[in-house]
Design a protein around this nucleic acid. Sequence first.
DNA 1: AGTTTATACACTTTTTTTGTTGTATTTGTC
DNA 2: GACAAATACAACAAAAAAAGTGTATAAACT
Lengths: 121, 121
Amino acid sequence: MQKKKVTTSKDIGERIKERRKELKISQEELAEILGVTYQQVQRYENGTNKLNVENIQRIANALSAPLSYFFEVYKMPVIAEEQAHYATPAENKLLRHFRKIRNSNSQNIVIQIARLAAKSD
Amino acid sequence: MQKKKVTTSKDIGERIKERRKELKISQEELAEILGVTYQQVQRYENGTNKLNVENIQRIANALSAPLSYFFEVYKMPVIAEEQAHYATPAENKLLRHFRKIRNSNSQNIVIQIARLAAKSD
DNA sequence: AGTTTATACACTTTTTTTGTTGTATTTGTC
DNA sequence: GACAAATACAACAAAAAAAGTGTATAAACT
């Protein structure tokens, strides 16, 4: 009877970091989604602290990955791979700023400016 | 954007109890495998305490069940359109316009406006 | 060149998890 | 019914996880 091996918190943490970077999400953004501090995200990624069964699910959702992605050898389907490179650097930059705008009116103004810039291009 | 639900510790606990009884394993036996007290197993089954990502795997192994047995099994495969919704509707709208801007200077101006809007938010 | 952002890491305090101990209740067996 | 094993649950102390705070460094951006 072989003893089944357990994926360690360290392994899971590395997988999280890897995936997070693919999606160009900062530790802070991920932390916000989880409702923890970004320092805590660092501890998860380092394997210093152990994720509980609820937070690993939240991370999986935030990173658009199935749970199995973090526990076993898993290759993301092609469609997700494309998604990772979907936005160009400029687009990512734009989004990073845009997401910090809380006021939806301000958001709309930015959208309108983008629209007009496109129109007169 | 639908909010994906998380399987709670209580739900997982109930599933553990259910499976353990199927296999006629006592709390104490399970506790030994985990290296915790049987009182702790009770707390897991009750959902009083949260399992960490390593112990849930040990439980899955001990109960000869896949990890997915304890979490929500079904997750509709994500299609391309939804996957693109890693960005919110507002973000997608912004990107649609932004991508039509050929002139990179104009692009940068839009980025700067977004940046300033975020800053003064 | 100066500034912001992201990341890393260490230290202290608060919160949660776990062990320990104890008692009560249920379940199965004779 | 009597007995033993399994389960439930509660209270307290110890250990681990997490928050909060601070500093440092490198990379990205202006």
